[in-house]
Amino acid sequence: MAKNTEKKTVSMKRRQRVGNFFSYLLLIVLSIIWLFPFFGIVMQSFRSYQTEFGGMVNYVIPKQFSLDNYKFLFSGETNFLKWYMNTLIIAAAVAVLQTIIIICTSYALSRMRFKGRNFLMRFWLILGMFPGFLTMICLYFLLKTIGLTQQGAIPGLILVSVASSGMGYYVCKGYMDTVPKALDEAARIDGASRARILFTMMLPMAKPIIIYTALVSFMAPWCDYIFASYIAFGHDSSYNVAVALYRWMKVNDYQGFFTRFCAGGVLVAIPVTALFMSLQKYYVEGVTGGAVKG
């Protein structure tokens, strides 16, 4: 009997080891697939225009490594640094303001019961299903009447993304819902006002979700190449970095800019990725919570 179980565990262990071997193999293959495009982009960014042209090629490792593309970006030949700063400003402003708005909405919807609350929640949910591109032209002229296009495109972009951010209350409200209401009640009996409860109790407890919200808000502007180019057209210095890089790829005037695009892409990816990786814990908490709460 005892011998038998021993045999069993041995065979199981072996099976597990074989299984693990294949698991590792699979994981390594997956990792290669996942990393390959990023590896490609980084490699291409080191290919020099001088020696190997700046367009597409069908090999990965450049024949000669050079920092030409990065030098080009920092040389001031283009407005790259300005575009980068623009994006940074937009991202930072949106991250702060959007988080504030979302906290306000979520708290109100999670903790307060008022007339029209359900209507508001459903209405916002339904609004979100309307395709956003359609309203670009309208938003453009709305912003134009208050002077926030072209020269004013950056505050304009911030305004638009912050203004409609209330609709993104979903994940944050779901999280606040999980904070026991009994805590509120206790505080209210002690005479704390709603505002006080928000600041002294809810905010500290909702820290993970606040960080998640800020992180997501911060990342979005780096990828906005459609609306940003729509409201900033004809005004080079109000582009954000995504618009400019996208133009290098798609507009015919820029021949041989592919490697520069890659270099720009790397520079964009570095801060975003670094921030994301360092706050990954909160991100996981956010998406998991959001997915389950719905």
Partner: peptide
């Protein structure tokens, strides 16, 4: 490693 695709802006990747 896998999460990298979320972090890098899509218009680049």
């Amino acid at each position: 490693i896998l999460v990298l695709t979320i972090a890098v802006p899509q218009f680049v990747s």
